[in-house]
């Protein structure tokens, strides 16, 4: 445990030093503030909570941006250290290989969590200062940040799996981009195409639910857009929310499994890997 915390602390500090945290926080703040003030413009006339509308926009943004950031943080984590010779050195110390993977993973998750809280929090506070937001909207906003970090953790775990499987950093980077394209763009387009072609014959509601859970980005989207009633009505997913039998706890469990499975696989592969 102690060794894991030491490694996590180092990874976090590295992120502070090489300005990862600053860069991610600024990027997220920039996007969230633009969405908060530009995207929430129509709320005035209909007297809708601007924070609730911002959550809808931020959820869509998170689905694109956070997996990309998470994969960029993580694809190099193991293979890069092997390249630089620091992994051989680290493993010559009294640490086990799973402690190394877990420690680095925790460090990267903390990095992403802090950046997300700062970046998205900036928009929340700006809206609170300018017009005020309802407690319910704040609750949904907290859920958004928590689930965004969880989704980030999913893609960090997938990035680690990529990082332990490949021999060089370039390949890892390429595969990471491929993973991003697959889950964020290709999967949903493919699913849509299958649904249209199928016309509801083979793919029933239950199968669709399963297919949505098989993509962590979709699980995140459902959790935020359909999970909270106030938000669901603005996102146009209120109908889906009523249909889908995927409650927030189930979606959260699915995301947690999406962290646990790739991370355990990464640890298992790394424990057998030649350094």
């Amino acid at each position: 445990m102690r060794q894991t915390i030491i490694i996590a602390g180092k990874e976090f500090r590295d992120g502070l030093r090489n300005r990862w945290i600053v860069a991610i926080s600024l990027l997220l703040a920039l996007f969230s503030l633009s969405l908060a003030f530009l995207g929430a413009a129509p709320t005035g006339a209909v007297n809708v909570d601007p924070l609730a509308v911002t959550i809808v926009s931020l959820s869509s943004l998170s689905v694109f941006l956070l997996p990309l950031i998470a994969l960029l943080l993580s694809y190099d984590a193991i293979v890069g250290d092997i390249d630089r010779g620091t992994m051989a050195l680290l493993l010559a110390y009294p640490v086990t290989r799973w402690q190394v993977v877990l420690g680095k993973f925790v460090g990267h998750c903390l990095l992403l969590a802090l950046s997300t809280v700062i970046g998205y929090g900036a928009a929340g506070f700006a809206l609170q200062l300018t017009g005020g937001a309802s407690p319910a909207a704040w609750q949904a906003f907290a859920l958004l940040i928590a689930s965004a970090v969880l989704m980030g953790a999913v893609f960090i775990a997938i990035g680690y799996l990529v990082s332990v499987l490949v021999r060089d950093r370039g390949t890892a980077g390429g595969i990471a981009i491929g993973v991003w394209l697959l889950f964020v763009l290709v999967y949903d387009m493919g699913l849509l195409a299958v649904l249209v072609a199928d016309q509801g014959r083979m793919i029933t509601g239950g199968v669709l639910n399963l297919l949505l859970l098989l993509n962590p980005a979709d699980a995140f989207r459902l959790l935020n857009l359909a999970g909270t009633p106030g938000v669901a009505s603005f996102s146009g997913l209120a109908g889906l929310a009523a249909q889908a039998h995927l409650g927030p706890p189930l979606l959260a469990v699915a995301l947690a499994l999406w962290v646990a499975v790739p991370l355990s696989a990464a640890m298992a592969v790394f424990s057998r890997r030649q350094i």
């Binding site: 590295d14 010779g85 050195l89």
Partner: peptide, 9 residues
């Protein structure tokens, strides 16, 4: 242990 071509952070 001191590895060959070591690069610290």
């Amino acid at each position: 242990y001191l590895p060959e071509n070591l690069a610290f952070q």
